[in-house]
Design a protein around this nucleic acid. Sequence first.
DNA 1: TTCTATGCAAATTATTTGCAGCACT
DNA 2: AGTGCTGCAAATAATTTGCATAGAA
Lengths: 134, 134
Amino acid sequence: MDDLELKKAGLKVTAPRLKILSLLESAGPDAHLSAEDVFKMLLEQGEEVGLATVYRVLTQFEQAGLVNRHHFDSGLSVFELSGDDHHDHMVCTETGQVIEFIDEDIERLQHEIAEKHGFDLVDHSLVLYVKPKK
Amino acid sequence: MDDLELKKAGLKVTAPRLKILSLLESAGPDAHLSAEDVFKMLLEQGEEVGLATVYRVLTQFEQAGLVNRHHFDSGLSVFELSGDDHHDHMVCTETGQVIEFIDEDIERLQHEIAEKHGFDLVDHSLVLYVKPKK
DNA sequence: TTCTATGCAAATTATTTGCAGCACT
DNA sequence: AGTGCTGCAAATAATTTGCATAGAA
């Protein structure tokens, strides 16, 4: 099933790639995992993969457009499956929970701002750091 | 002159702190320097400081609210003097140039979005990656 | 003097790379 | 057989920390 996605991406279908891809899929759409997270989860499932391979595969997936990499002010990278949809993130500073959202007005304003300064918008990163309302 | 700012921040007035603070000030408001950048610039000026001290001082400045730290998808940290004003960033993917901007509508929308999800907005990070219009 | 700050080197953390062996064509 | 993929260990890059000494109050 995931075979097609890998082939389409020009990547050979191998065990580690399949395992990582399906892990990302089963982790749900709001999962944002670091390479370490993925590595540990695979170990827990009794899978045999090297951390280096996890990094390599995740990087290949990123280049193939299968996943997106974010930095979220923490300094380490987190990865998520890139659906067809673009979205931004809200990170709870107390629980670490990540919520995805999209706001058309903000999207439009961003383009306008880039234009106004003589640029074309290539990409953007918007992260809201929030805490539960008391 | 910068002595006051340091004292106000509860930091002892020392040579490295003064040098780094004045370097940041003279670098201009749109300067976003990494710890390495600051370190090298100090060396070029013939100053004697350790890289570790640069990191320590920059971190202290951050905690004191004197500077802001950003990650800009590159994975390394950049620092800038935090004026009283909040602003977001636009980074040119071709020249590396950083432009600061602020858009009240986007600010307002961000609060609304957090509210809508039952959170209070604590902070946010918005970076537009752009390229010159052809 | 007393306590904090600094420099330097060693330690950590996140991530990448070299290389020998295995897998698939 | 040939080329790509993997694991493991060694290599890097960014940042932090331990410790003995220099410096500020």
